[in-house]
Computed example of a mutant assay.
Amino acid sequence: MNETPQVVTIAGSDSGGGAGMQADLKTFQARHAFGMNIVIALTAQNTLGVQESYPIPPAFIDAQFASLAADFQIRAAKTGMLADREHVACVVKNLQAVDFGPLVVDPVMIAKGGHPLLEADAITSIRTELLPLATIVTPNIPEAEVLADCEIHTEADMMKAAKMIQQFGVKHVIIKGGHQVGEQARDYVLFASGESKWLSGPRIETQNTHGTGDTFSACIAAELAKGTPLEEAILIGKQFIQGAIEQGIAVGHGHGPTNHWATLSESIKESKV
């Protein structure tokens, strides 16, 4: 019993299927880990944007945590959309009460179409309550600017912001460089040891990038659930999302989803700092 690698996403539901827990579950399956979900919020959403959102009552979130903890051997977890301060506090309380293994925090704040997915009053809770529980946090540049309370324009700024975010108690920090310009999309990885490196892949000109952050962090969580060493899990996450963008699919009329059945890209380069 319970020998199959198991991983859970604690996130919002994307009715359009490209992001949120749907992207997470597709990624878990693609990486051969059994996926589960704890629903934090429902959204009416498509590739054009988020039309409505409905946070789940905290008591029902408690019930989902209790149900999974009573039966499954969850070996890694990730968070996505957490809605507001009340829901962050609820998730933190439950994570402190269970052992779901390494925690990957994707600090989702704004949807591709601009709809806010995290209330401003929850930022402090993310910093002071959730990040100390996390193994890895994976912000994009706008999210890193909010977490570190600084502007990021250069790669040196990314490195500085990662150190500032690490001071909140999270072990490892990955700042994704997709919002930068240049031929390469470069992610900065800062490890708990103080060592760091860059992961680089060719920038792909496409509007089909809905759910990239969810997919990247979900892949890392799935690999950790399988027992993959941390540094290798991060590299596979970058290879997986690069492949999902390179090997694109056509769905919807706006920011389309990535391809969750793509193969790992061979174009990723690593460089130690």
Score class of each variant (00 low, 15 high):
124 T>F: 07
135 T>A: 08
26 K>I: 00
228 T>G: 11
255 H>D: 11
272 K>W: 13
15 S>F: 02
19 A>E: 15
127 R>L: 01
199 L>N: 08
240 F>N: 00
227 G>A: 08
185 A>L: 02
198 W>K: 14
236 I>K: 11
133 L>C: 10
141 I>L: 02
204 I>G: 12
131 L>D: 11
247 Q>A: 05
84 D>R: 10
4 T>A: 00
173 V>D: 07
130 L>C: 10
98 V>Q: 13
154 T>S: 12
41 A>D: 08
258 T>I: 11
18 G>Y: 13
222 A>T: 04
80 G>N: 04
85 R>H: 12
131 L>G: 14
48 L>D: 09
38 I>T: 15
157 D>C: 00
73 Q>R: 13
245 I>S: 01
40 I>Q: 12
149 D>L: 02
105 V>G: 05
55 P>I: 09
101 G>H: 10
245 I>T: 06
198 W>Q: 12
31 R>Q: 09
256 G>W: 15
31 R>H: 11
92 V>T: 08
262 A>P: 02
63 A>M: 12
105 V>S: 02
270 E>R: 11
257 P>W: 10
176 K>R: 08
117 L>W: 00
227 G>C: 15
118 L>I: 06
156 A>W: 02
218 A>K: 13
42 L>Y: 04
112 K>T: 15
77 A>G: 06
109 M>T: 05
13 S>L: 02
88 V>M: 15
240 F>C: 05
255 H>P: 10
26 K>L: 01
